[in-house]
Nucleic acid binder design. Structure first.
Lengths: 365, 365
DNA sequence: GGATCGAGTGTAAGCGCATACAACGAGCGA
DNA sequence: TCGCTCGTTGTATGCGCTTACACTCGATCC
């Protein structure tokens, strides 16, 4: 690493001009085979790796797509304790509530994988940023300066900032509400999914007595799901306002708290509809602890389709979101916009899948 | 996005020179307050976002750290079927083996999160790359040209390529074997962890009859774990070669297959030690299906500490790797190398934690 | 055999920014 | 009052690459 070599070094070493070196790397067909090999040999010998900065500057494109997340995991609060463990190994008894579980498989992991996959397929690299700290807007700006386009997760960026950076690069919104026709937008069928699930419980399982465990007030996805729930009831002539609605916070812990309330007040419904899987898992925790049978006494359902729901017992009935596809679709929309900036706004709704499992259906046959 | 504005536009609009614009953004304290505000107003009005390429070129650093993974998920094989679903919602009965489960929470997700966190803390952005396709080396090269330093997951890059790019930027190896003193290296105490777990089984549970479900031949981590297993037996005067060793492939499916063999041949041991959690979960699947009690008849243990292991039933005894910390440590090592290129090679071993759960200990008290 | 053509290569002009250095003016001490 | 310093701003250069354009030279054509 003494001093990274440049096109000039390679050109000198191979006895050609820098333009030829550049051509060998960009459009090898334009160079005579013998020259090409000479240059490649020099590249290898000098350990030459082209600077993406210089290339991007000259070519007016970076070849990078960006993905920006809000900081839902609050990981910045981790301290450094683990780096200073006393020894190499520690043996502990891990009780169900030890808090030793690892960070859950977040929504984001899959969106990220999908994004990376699609970006790669199209020949782009992917840059990720997580909004946290005092100045998330700075991070957005920073990323915006590094990429050819950026996908942004719902509500994670103030409108003003979004508008600012969108003057430089195309922006794609993932999930959340559509914001007018200003940005391309990909999301999933939240309402239709919750509607279908509720309708199944109404029609097939004959449930009429519900409680709804809602997400935080400000979640647009949560709101859409709730709408779907209400719509299903209305379609069957039931009064949607008759079902108690408990406000949660999308966390397992909040699911536990709210369910505990329900148990303590003796107001357990026949079916507990949760706005996401985490809360539903929290509900299962509490119901099991109180000896309430699921689904015999209470049916529990979630939304998202996280892995933990499929290994819980009973396995959790849920609505699976195509999160990987969400990421892929976002990148596609972005590239399509890059190709044709003047096309009309893209707005994509990805289909969801209701997964009926033992928390609503009973033991598998 | 008509045309991204530049320093020149901002300078003209604010009636200052480009140097002043640059200063306002880089070292605001060097500029008189009134000028600063004038410039910032222009920045905002013009939707100016500085080009990281130009900045990086001029400043000779990118402000980006890289993370490179091998493609263990084989996700590129996904096709586009899901994009063409017939409707918005589909309702399906999801049996335990429907294959509808989502991609597992990979090792990588957490390494990635840790990396991003630490990079952010140090004021860097993170770029990720997954090796796949015909020319993974190209991807490595591409990333290397974009970043100030790169962390690489075990065995994912050929030595020659590694050596090539390491002439341009510092490289940190994550997990896997150390390769001489050429690179900085962070890993976990695989052997010590497996040793401690096995020793617990020997001393506390009184197990003497083992079978070992090993990973693929070429996994250095797998080899270290196996060494730990053998070491524990030797330390207690047992013959390590007496325990049958089944070769797996680190996948749940392989775990199932191998365990099925064990069941069919009636050679079930008292304890089945698996080289990772995925295989252990596969073993649990099969044992449950055959009515074999865990841990009453057979004790099962894993390695890694993935989330699915903590929601399985019985919950899986395992050795938890600090994967998030692994990512963080890699970034730290990189930055430390960046600060002082001449310091001696860094080699870090992170501690692991043996988590005793119901698959070895029986029901919680 | 000279004009024409095309493949292959070189020349040179930026791309948008950071920054060393120069320039300038106001405040200061002597 | 003169020269000096310090704070503030402008000028000019270069970071490493891509690419339009010019150029060379042997092959082709009439």
């Amino acid at each position: 690493m003494a001093k990274a070599s440049t096109v000039y070094d390679v050109a000198a070493h191979a006895g050609v001009s820098i333009a030829t070196v550049s051509r060998v790397l960009r459009r090898p067909a334009d160079v005579r085979a013998s020259t090409r090999e000479k240059v490649l040999a020099s590249v290898w010998e000098l350990g030459y790796v082209p600077s993406a900065n210089a290339r991007g500057l000259a070519a007016r494109r970076t070849g990078v797509l960006g993905l920006y997340f809000p900081n839902l995991d609050a990981m910045e609060e981790l301290d450094d304790a683990e780096f200073h463990g006393s020894g190499l190994v520690e043996v502990v008894r891990d009780m169900p509530d030890s808090g030793l579980v690892r960070p859950p498989n977040l929504y984001f992991d899959e969106v990220l994988r999908g994004s990376e996959l699609e970006a790669w397929r199209q020949g782009f690299a992917l840059m990720v940023g997580v909004g946290r700290g005092a100045f998330p807007a700075d991070m957005v700006n920073d990323i915006a300066g590094r990429v050819d386009g950026m996908a942004v997760l719902a509500q994670s960026v103030p409108d003003a900032v979004l508008e600012h950076v969108s003057r430089r690069i195309p922006i794609v919104l993932i999930a959340g509400p559509r914001r007018g026709d200003d940005y391309d937008h990909v999301s999933v069928s939240n309402a239709a999914g919750m509607d279908a699930l509720t309708t199944h419980l109404l029609d097939v399982k004959g449930v009429t007595n519900f409680a709804y465990l809602a997400g935080p007030e400000d979640s647009p996805d949560g709101a859409e799901r709730f709408d779907g729930f209400r719509r299903a009831l209305e379609n069957r002539g039931l009064d949607p306002d008759a079902s108690p609605v408990l406000r949660g916070g999308f966390s397992r812990q909040r699911g536990r708290e709210v369910t505990t309330e329900l148990v303590n007040t003796g107001m357990l419904p026949r079916a507990l509809i949760c706005a996401n899987d985490q809360m539903a898992l929290g509900a299962l925790d509490v119901l099991r602890a109180h000896g309430v049978g699921v689904p015999s006494d209470v049916i529990v359902t979630g939304f998202d389709g996280i892995e933990a729901g499929s290994t819980a017992s009973p396995r959790l009935t849920t609505v699976r979101q195509p999160m990987v596809d969400l990421g892929r679709a976002a990148m596609r929309a972005m590239l399509s916009r890059l190709e044709d900036p003047k096309q009309p706004p893209i707005s994509l709704r990805l289909p969801v899948k209701v997964l009926l499992r033992e928390s609503s259906e009973g033991p598998p046959s």
